[in-house]
Amino acid sequence: MATGGRRGAAAAPLLVAVAALLLGAAGHLYPGEVCPGMDIRNNLTRLHELENCSVIEGHLQILLMFKTRPEDFRDLSFPKLIMITDYLLLFRVYGLESLKDLFPNLTVIRGSRLFFNYALVIFEMVHLKELGLYNLMNITRGSVRIEKNNELCYLATIDWSRILDSVEDNYIVLNKDDNEECGDICPGTAKGKTNCPATVINGQFVERCWTHSHCQKVCPTICKSHGCTAEGLCCHSECLGNCSQPDDPTKCVACRNFYLDGRCVETCPPPYYHFQDWRCVNFSFCQDLHHKCKNSRRQGCHQYVIHNNKCIPECPSGYTMNSSNLLCTPCLGPCPKVCHLLEGEKTIDSVTSAQELRGCTVINGSLIINIRGGNNLAAELEANLGLIEEISGYLKIRRSYALVSLSFFRKLRLIRGETLEIGNYSFYALDNQNLRQLWDWSKHNLTITQGKLFFHYNPKLCLSEIHKMEEVSGTKGRQERNDIALKTNGDQASCENELLKFSYIRTSFDKI
């Protein structure tokens, strides 16, 4: 039985969820670079991206490699990797027998973001014989899940209580170790020597080791999670996991709180800001991140802002960003909400898709409305799209047979046209069989910064309504002859009103 693990408890099935942008060198404390989270699957090609990484700022997932063999891993080693800020997950990587050479110096898994409450997941690794993470000293947050690894031993010899604050939620089941077939031998045991430290858990006094050649490092209890030197002297209180010299914040392997210019500090002093819960960055760093993602459509890219001495992905609820200094300031009234469309555009074809934009005031991208039916549609669209004030790209209304009016965009005031449909149009209306009105132009103002209007096959939309939009939106004169079809717009509506004058002759039985 794995020490510190839980057996036999019912657990939810383990679901495996399925960018080499360097964020800056980590400095003297770390020998390499800070790398983003990685999802490495199918083959070993991307694994080489770990070569210079000291910190993975995010998670590391290595999974679904069915053609790899043990010899493929023999020359692979990433000794610079010290810390993973989120979680480490391995799933069905064939041929991998140990992690001792792959990650010989991995010391800390912070667990800032977890995989279903777990910071370390080893699942269905069919050839893994031992973990071998002999320098792993601290899992700051989260638990361990090690399950269905039929060859995995050296679990009962690990004292997880020396690595985690609590072992109650560890789930370590259905491994070879369960069948008591392992016969784990710690260093020196074969020669009758006791080389590794022994600890007591559940009444068992057991030597602690990761492999037959690597003991588990056990520091004096007084050192807590700070770690200790090879001689057993406690590291500085700002260290986490390990250090090369005692009581020196510049000799830590990793930091308990924050890293700044080669030393570990309790908090980031001005003019620095907390970033990702582990390091200090200056304003320029946060500003660069903001600008890199301002026009990016890459998933996970955030326009970072500053709030409460932190550089964070977005302002919290009730705050909006001051564009001059990136500071989050309290909103006066309802907060603006910028919604970034991942692929640059979004099609609204149902109430469900409209709900995804609920509360958005600025759309960074283009909207395509293609709704053919739905219950209580006008009210639903207004509830979900009615706060949109600005669209950076274009607005396209296409084959939306259920629409009679666009009044559900009740606050839309600006279409920038930074991206144009077919390279020309910022407003595009095609084949809307029941569209009769755009907006009530006596109450609604709309500016279209650039781009043209396109109207074709809107049989109940009168040309007068379209011409009014040209005047109000500032697009009059931009359109070419064929942009607004004269014969297919309003051709099934009563669009022309003329005053009919009647004269009559009164007659009676005795007068003409």
Rank of each mutant, 00 (worst) to 15 (best):
L29N: 12
L29R: 15
L29W: 12
Y30S: 02
Y30P: 03
Y30L: 06
Y30K: 06
Y30T: 04
P31V: 09
P31N: 15
G32R: 09
E33Q: 09
E33M: 13
E33R: 10
V34H: 10
C35K: 01
G37V: 02
G37F: 06
M38V: 05
R41Q: 11
N42D: 08
N42P: 05
N42I: 03
N43V: 05
N43T: 05
T45L: 13
H48M: 03
E49R: 15
E49T: 13
L50T: 02
C53F: 00
S54N: 11
V55A: 09
V55S: 02
I56Q: 00
I56K: 00
E57Y: 10
H59W: 07
H59V: 12
L64M: 10
L64Y: 11
M65I: 04
M65V: 05
M65W: 02
M65E: 10
F66K: 12
F66L: 12
F66N: 01
K67W: 15
K67A: 06
T68L: 10
T68S: 06
T68Q: 09
R69D: 01
P70T: 06
P70A: 10
P70H: 06
E71A: 14
D72T: 09
F73S: 02
R74K: 09
R74Q: 04
D75A: 04
S77G: 13
S77E: 09
F78I: 15
F78V: 06
F78Y: 12
P79Y: 04
K80F: 09
L81P: 00
I82M: 09
M83N: 00
I84V: 04
I84S: 00
T85I: 12
D86W: 01
Y87V: 00
Y87F: 04
L88C: 00
L89F: 11
L90M: 13
F91H: 04
V93L: 13
Y94C: 06
G95L: 02
L96R: 00
E97P: 04
S98V: 02
K100S: 10
K100P: 02
F103N: 00
F103S: 00
P104I: 01
L106A: 00
T107M: 07
V108F: 02
R110I: 06
R110F: 04
S112L: 12
L114G: 01
L114V: 03
F115G: 00
F116I: 09
F116M: 08
N117D: 09
A119I: 00
A119V: 03
L120T: 02
L120R: 01
L120H: 00
V121M: 06
I122G: 02
F123L: 08
E124A: 06
M125L: 02
M125V: 05
K129C: 14
K129S: 10
E130L: 06
E130K: 04
E130S: 08
G132N: 15
G132E: 01
L133P: 01
Y134S: 11
M137F: 12
N138G: 05
N138D: 05
I139D: 01
I139M: 04
I139F: 03
T140K: 12
T140Q: 09
R141E: 14
R141V: 10
S143D: 14
S143R: 11
S143F: 07
V144C: 03
R145P: 01
R145Y: 07
R145N: 10
K148L: 06
N149Y: 00
N149I: 00
N150Y: 11
E151I: 02
E151M: 04
E151A: 09
L152M: 15
L152V: 11
Y154C: 04
L155C: 14
L155A: 07
T157G: 07
T157Y: 02
I158G: 02
I158L: 10
D159M: 07
W160K: 02
W160N: 01
W160V: 01
S161T: 14
R162N: 15
R162F: 08
I163L: 04
I163S: 01
L164E: 04
L164C: 13
L164Q: 04
D165A: 11
D165E: 15
D165S: 09
D165V: 08
S166V: 14
S166Y: 09
S166P: 13
S166T: 10
E168M: 08
E168L: 14
D169F: 15
N170E: 09
N170M: 08
Y171A: 15
Y171F: 12
V173P: 07
V173H: 15
L174V: 06
L174F: 11
D177G: 14
D177N: 12
D177I: 02
D177S: 06
D178C: 07
D178L: 08
N179Q: 11
N179Y: 03
E180F: 04
E180N: 10
E181T: 06
C182Q: 04
G183Y: 10
I185E: 03
I185H: 07
C186R: 02
G188C: 11
G188M: 03
A190Q: 15
A190S: 08
K191R: 12
K191Y: 04
K191T: 08
K191I: 09
G192R: 13
K193M: 13
K193Q: 04
T194F: 15
T194C: 07
N195M: 12
N195V: 12
N195H: 07
C196V: 12
P197V: 10
P197I: 14
P197S: 12
T199L: 13
T199A: 10
T199Q: 10
T199S: 06
V200R: 10
V200I: 13
V200P: 06
I201Y: 11
I201L: 13
I201H: 15
I201V: 11
N202D: 11
N202P: 12
F205W: 14
F205G: 13
V206K: 07
R208V: 02
H212G: 10
H212C: 15
S213P: 07
C215D: 10
Q216A: 10
Q216S: 10
Q216K: 04
K217F: 12
V218P: 06
P220F: 01
P220N: 06
C223S: 03
C223F: 05
K224R: 04
K224H: 06
K224C: 05
H226N: 11
H226R: 13
G227I: 04
C228L: 02
T229I: 10
E231T: 07
G232M: 11
L233E: 15
C234P: 03
C234M: 03
C235Y: 01
C235K: 00
C235T: 00
H236W: 01
H236R: 01
S237N: 10
E238R: 07
E238T: 03
E238D: 13
E238A: 13
C239R: 01
C239Q: 01
L240I: 10
G241Y: 10
G241D: 01
G241H: 03
C243N: 00
Q245V: 12
P246T: 07
D247P: 02
D247A: 08
D247E: 04
D248H: 08
D248I: 02
D248Y: 00
P249K: 02
P249N: 11
P249R: 11
T250L: 11
V253D: 02
V253G: 06
C255K: 01
C255L: 00
R256I: 08
F258H: 07
Y259S: 05
Y259C: 15
L260I: 12
D261R: 09
D261W: 04
D261H: 13
G262M: 05
R263I: 08
T267Y: 14
C268V: 00
C268P: 00
C268L: 01
P269T: 11
P270M: 13
P271L: 04
Y272K: 07
Y273H: 13
Y273V: 10
H274G: 09
Q276W: 04
D277R: 07
D277G: 12
D277Y: 08
N282M: 07
F283A: 01
S284G: 05
Q287V: 14
K292L: 14
C293I: 08
C293Y: 01
K294V: 10
N295Q: 05
S296Q: 11
S296W: 15
R297A: 14
R297P: 10
R297K: 07
R298W: 15
G300C: 07
G300V: 12
C301Q: 04
C301N: 02
H302K: 11
H302F: 05
Y304K: 02
V305H: 09
I306F: 14
I306M: 03
H307L: 09
H307Y: 07
N308G: 08
N309F: 06
P313L: 15
P313A: 07
E314A: 12
E314R: 12
C315K: 00
P316A: 13
P316F: 08
P316K: 09
S317Q: 13
Y319V: 03
Y319Q: 04
Y319P: 01
Y319A: 11
Y319F: 08
T320Y: 06
T320M: 09
N322S: 14
S323F: 10
S324W: 11
N325R: 09
N325A: 15
L327W: 11
T329A: 07
T329E: 02
P330I: 14
C331N: 14
C331M: 02
G333K: 09
P334Q: 14
P334H: 02
C335N: 03
C335P: 12
C335R: 03
C335H: 09
P336E: 11
